[in-house]
């Protein structure tokens, strides 16, 4: 169950990263910072909404991803666009962005981890053991969001435009698509997904200004194993990594689990750059 929650949150984060890489060919190192920002904003929003924790949390679920997406769109317009999406320059720029966001969170939010109360506290009592109702809700919510993303990408006009831009930027532009706006939208959507994942997770763990590191590393791993830019591979890989990470950390130390996962991923990139599920380009 723990593994399933982890996998669900991971899948959301990683799909955001994969989307950005797939459409824009940008490796977004600041993705973990967007995740962290989502959690931190969730805490802030929950502070200002009085009454039942439920209202605060739902308000956070609406507001935090919107703010994060807006920040991402701004960063895209003012920084990434001006670099012409040159892959090396954008990596350097997103590293810079990561530092700026982390420091901003540290200065404004403080160094301590802050808890956010869960919107509800129902325990699902089975005859032999109980489950936290919220964790089950997280899994279902993540699946719902992922389905929505899938529907958006395959069934709507905006999704079609995004996929067209992914396949051929020049031709898309020739057909009158505003590629710049598509890119800003995709970058915002990717960051927003990370923020949603963070808001879902934050009642279980806590908000902390350095919390972006782990999800970033893990989503990198997921995206690479699943094949860079392939959404279906990303989902499968998220399940595998999320579940196995829990299992390995239970039997051995979490550090060892990370060492193994990281080394495995480096090897995948070296020997099978298209990923385990991606088609050969």
């Amino acid at each position: 169950m723990e593994g399933l929650v982890k996998a669900a949150v991971l899948a959301l984060t990683a799909v955001g990263l994969s989307l950005v890489f797939g459409v824009m060919r940008v490796v977004n190192v600041a993705h973990g910072a967007f995740f962290m920002l989502g959690a931190v904003l969730a805490w802030t929003v929950a502070q200002y909404v009085p009454g039942d924790p439920m209202f605060g949390w739902f308000a956070a679920l609406l507001i935090a991803p919107a703010i994060v997406a807006a920040i991402a769109a701004t960063a895209d317009t003012f920084v990434l666009k001006r670099l012409n999406y040159d892959p090396e320059a954008t990596i350097v720029a997103t590293i810079g962005l990561l530092y700026i966001l982390e420091q901003a969170a540290l200065s404004l939010f403080g160094p301590d981890a802050k808890p956010v109360p869960a919107p509800f506290n129902i325990r699902l009592q089975l005859p032999w053991f109980g489950y936290s109702g919220y964790k089950i809700f997280v899994v279902f919510a993540a699946v719902a969001v992922l389905l929505a993303v899938w529907w958006f990408m395959t069934r709507t006009r905006a999704g079609l435009v995004m996929r067209a831009t992914q396949v051929d930027r020049q031709t898309a532009r020739a057909f009158g698509i505003n590629v710049d706006r598509v890119y800003a939208g995709v970058f915002a959507l990717g960051a927003g997904l990370a923020a949603i994942a963070a808001v879902l997770l934050v009642p279980i763990s806590q908000a902390h200004y350095l919390m972006g590191g782990d999800p970033l590393l893990l989503s990198f791993i997921v995206v690479i194993i699943g094949g860079l830019g392939s959404l279906r591979g990303t989902l499968v890989a998220a399940l595998i990594i999320g579940l196995s990470d829990g299992v390995i950390s239970m039997f051995w130390s979490p550090t060892l689990a990370k060492i193994i996962a990281t080394a495995a991923v480096a090897m995948v990139l070296v020997f099978r750059p298209q990923g385990l599920f991606g088609a050969r380009a």
Partner: peptide, 17 residues
Amino acid sequence: TSAYLMVVGAALVVLVL
């Protein structure tokens, strides 16, 4: 300020831009 990482980050962004 204590915002030393901010300086590093801003320097990176300004430089590539």
